[in-house]
């Protein structure tokens, strides 16, 4: 009897097989996602370096020092601003070197805002002069944009049928003092993702609104990338620049810019 119990193999519960299978699936997907995501970054860099203007650029054929590169960036930025100034559009000029963000129209600075903080992908720090010029040496135009606030806060009001319907509602409808979390994101036509975060240190409720907005944006991108990676496709990598400015200024700039604004960036 004892011998029989000793030799009988204990059955492994079915759930253990399921667990191992799930864990294995997680590991495979996670590794696949990581490898293909890294490849996406490298592929993006290679794609830029393979562009004709980058390959033929004289600046890529000689070793340059940092002082020269800084001046080269300054020149590219000014050239782009001049190029944008020829248009009739309100544009955004982002100077990350001096931490200044400017709203411009026909070369006139309408509003100058101090950038509180910014973060840019390591990708941008790896650009050679030719690739830098390819990305930032010409004006970029905003494509799709997402935000926590509306572009034009239009209130619809039905015309009263007669004077008795007219109400004294002027004071009630004013919403300029309304507190809004201001976060917006622009996808530029050069593939760069430009994110603006309105920062108000006194309003914690707004902080959550912002976090929630960015979390959903990130989640959307991850889901999209994940779907591609499980099919062994390299996802699209969009290098991003994230800028923090004051909330009121972020709102004013967002509402002043056209739907597809022109942007020049000095990195």
């Amino acid at each position: 009897m004892d011998l029989q119990e000793y030799t009988r193999r204990k059955p492994v519960p079915f759930q253990n097989y399921v667990l191992v299978l799930i864990l294995f699936g997680f590991i495979v997907i996670a590794l696949q996602y990581a490898v293909l995501s890294v490849l996406a970054v490298r592929q993006k860099m290679e794609a830029i370096n393979e562009q004709v203007d980058v390959k033929l650029s004289a600046v890529n054929t000689q070793p340059v020092d940092s002082a020269w590169f800084e001046l080269y960036k300054e020149k590219a930025w000014l050239e782009t601003r001049v190029q944008i100034a020829r248009t009739d559009s309100i544009s955004l000029s982002v100077n990350l070197k001096d931490s200044v963000l400017q709203l411009e129209l026909k070369g006139v600075v309408l509003k100058s805002v101090k950038i509180i903080d910014f973060a840019a992908d390591a990708f941008f720090y790896q650009l050679n002069p030719g690739a830098y010029h390819h990305l930032f040496g010409t004006q970029a135009q905003g494509g799709s944009n997402y935000s926590t606030i509306v572009k034009a806060p239009i209130t619809i009001k039905k015309a009263p049928k007669d004077t008795s319907e007219v109400r004294t509602e002027v004071v009630a409808k004013i919403d300029s003092a309304k507190v809004e979390a201001v976060h917006w994101m622009l996808t530029l036509d050069n593939g760069v993702l430009f994110k603006i975060e309105g920062t108000d240190q006194y309003l914690k409720s707004n902080w959550w609104v912002g976090r929630k907005f960015w979390f959903w944006q990130d989640l959307h991108k991850i889901t999209q990338d994940l779907r591609q990676t499980v099919q062994f496709e390299i996802p699209e990598y969009q290098p991003e620049i994230r800028v923090h400015i004051s909330e009121a200024e972020a709102r004013a700039i967002f509402r002043a810019l056209p739907v597809h604004p022109l942007i020049c960036i000095r990195f």
Binding site: A34, A40, R42, M45, N60, T61, A122, F123, Y125, Q126
Partner: peptide, 14 residues
Amino acid sequence: LKNSNLIFAKEEKE
């Protein structure tokens, strides 16, 4: 990882 400098290949000047 995507933001790490390690993933970028060292460029060779032509």
